[in-house]
Simulated assay, not measured.
Amino acid sequence: MKLQGNKILITGGSAGIGLALAKKFVELDNEVLITGRTKEKLDAAKSECNELMCFQCDGSDPQQITELSQSIQNIHPDMNVLINNAGVLVSRNLLNKPESLVEFTKEVDINVKGTVLTTSLFLNQIEKNKGTIINVSSGLAFVPMMSAPIYCATKAFIHSFTTSLRYQLESQGVEVVELAPPAVKTNMTARLPEDGFFDILSTDELVKATISGLKSGKKEICPGQASKLRLLSRLMPDYIERKLAKASRGYMPKTSK
């Protein structure tokens, strides 16, 4: 992927990893469009980087994703890079009865359905522009963490989906990249201790590793601890699964009485 002169759409770009990537791509002389669920977060992102073009969209709502794709294709037909970054993580104890079935599956709706629908609706445009699709999975796509069972399963889905997508599109001139971050210092990981098992990267460190991976043409970018999880999942799966379960035990909600 070339790093300059693109028009890039980043879902979930109003905070965290998405916003950090957005600001870096602007710095590298790209036009960047971001989505976010709330106007307040989009306005805050805009105040940090005025060059960003903002679109309010809930990544779990098929109608909103459809309307977003129609708007982008009409207003920005030269958009050639899609970064599927929107995602949520919820710590869960599966022994507890969910408060609502809708809430219980929101990680599936955003992380899985949102990525699949967004990719499908923008695929013809990306193919026409011989562009790039970057799907953000996680180091937890390779090793499940006990305290986030649904999140980890959704990220394993994204890993598999991205691999299949890459092979389907390799003859169409579309590059497909997977970015699998480790724990990154954002609101999503606020409860993780920095002196524990988790080696937490800053967003700046993650962005630096991502740009380096894209520059070198990597199809799977696994910065920091994510590369270790990926390797150990193949060499010592039982060991690393138990190690991660022990490290995350304190973050799982207690069983309701």
Results as ranks from 00 to 15, higher is better:
residue 107 E to N: 10
residue 10 I to R: 07
residue 189 T to A: 14
residue 71 S to A: 13
residue 142 F to T: 03
residue 205 E to D: 13
residue 148 A to L: 05
residue 189 T to K: 00
residue 94 L to N: 03
residue 201 L to G: 05
residue 221 I to H: 05
residue 196 G to P: 05
residue 162 T to K: 05
residue 199 D to T: 11
residue 45 A to D: 10
residue 118 T to N: 12
residue 25 F to I: 08
residue 62 P to V: 00
residue 234 R to C: 13
residue 7 K to H: 14
residue 210 T to G: 00
residue 239 Y to E: 06
residue 135 N to L: 09
residue 180 A to L: 03
residue 220 E to R: 13
residue 137 S to Y: 11
residue 240 I to G: 08
residue 56 Q to H: 01
residue 192 L to C: 02
residue 219 K to M: 12
residue 132 T to D: 11
residue 207 V to Q: 06
residue 133 I to D: 11
residue 86 A to E: 05
residue 197 F to G: 04
residue 171 S to V: 07
residue 131 G to R: 03
residue 80 N to D: 14
residue 51 E to K: 15
residue 68 L to K: 00
residue 232 L to C: 09
residue 89 L to E: 07
residue 196 G to R: 06
residue 7 K to A: 12
residue 223 P to F: 02
residue 40 E to L: 12
residue 167 Y to S: 04
residue 221 I to L: 05
residue 176 V to W: 11
residue 156 A to D: 06
residue 126 I to V: 14
residue 214 L to S: 07
residue 120 S to K: 15
residue 14 S to E: 02
residue 74 N to W: 00
residue 49 C to H: 06
residue 192 L to N: 02
residue 94 L to A: 03
residue 51 E to S: 15
residue 130 K to G: 09
residue 15 A to G: 01
residue 92 R to G: 00
residue 203 T to W: 01
residue 228 K to A: 14
residue 46 K to E: 08
residue 112 V to G: 01
residue 140 L to C: 13
residue 120 S to W: 14
residue 99 E to H: 07
residue 65 I to S: 04
residue 112 V to Y: 10
residue 158 I to N: 10
residue 14 S to L: 01
residue 61 D to N: 15
residue 216 S to N: 15
residue 68 L to N: 01
residue 253 P to Y: 07
residue 85 N to S: 10
residue 122 F to C: 07
residue 50 N to G: 04
residue 144 P to L: 11
residue 143 V to C: 09
residue 205 E to W: 05
residue 136 V to P: 03
residue 113 K to W: 08
residue 70 Q to L: 08
residue 175 E to I: 04
residue 16 G to T: 07
residue 31 E to T: 15
residue 107 E to Y: 10
residue 177 V to T: 07
residue 197 F to E: 13
residue 47 S to R: 14
residue 45 A to M: 11
residue 88 V to G: 04
residue 178 E to V: 13
residue 85 N to G: 06
residue 51 E to P: 06
residue 138 S to Y: 06
residue 185 K to S: 13
residue 158 I to H: 08
residue 188 M to S: 04
residue 157 F to D: 11
residue 78 D to L: 05
residue 125 Q to Y: 02
residue 52 L to Y: 12
residue 58 D to S: 12
residue 152 C to F: 03
residue 215 K to L: 07
residue 174 V to D: 10
residue 107 E to V: 09
residue 185 K to A: 15
residue 248 S to R: 01
residue 211 I to Q: 11
residue 238 D to T: 14
residue 189 T to D: 09
residue 193 P to C: 09
residue 192 L to F: 14
residue 148 A to V: 13
residue 79 M to F: 09
residue 29 D to W: 03
residue 105 T to R: 10
residue 211 I to A: 11
residue 165 L to W: 05
residue 244 L to N: 13
residue 211 I to M: 12
residue 190 A to K: 15
residue 148 A to I: 12
residue 207 V to H: 06
residue 257 K to H: 13
residue 25 F to L: 10
residue 71 S to Q: 14
residue 237 P to G: 13
residue 176 V to D: 12
residue 248 S to L: 01
residue 67 E to T: 12
residue 177 V to A: 07
residue 250 G to N: 07
residue 46 K to Y: 10
residue 165 L to F: 05
residue 166 R to L: 10
residue 32 V to C: 06
residue 95 L to A: 10
residue 223 P to N: 01
residue 156 A to E: 11
residue 4 Q to Y: 09
residue 208 K to E: 15
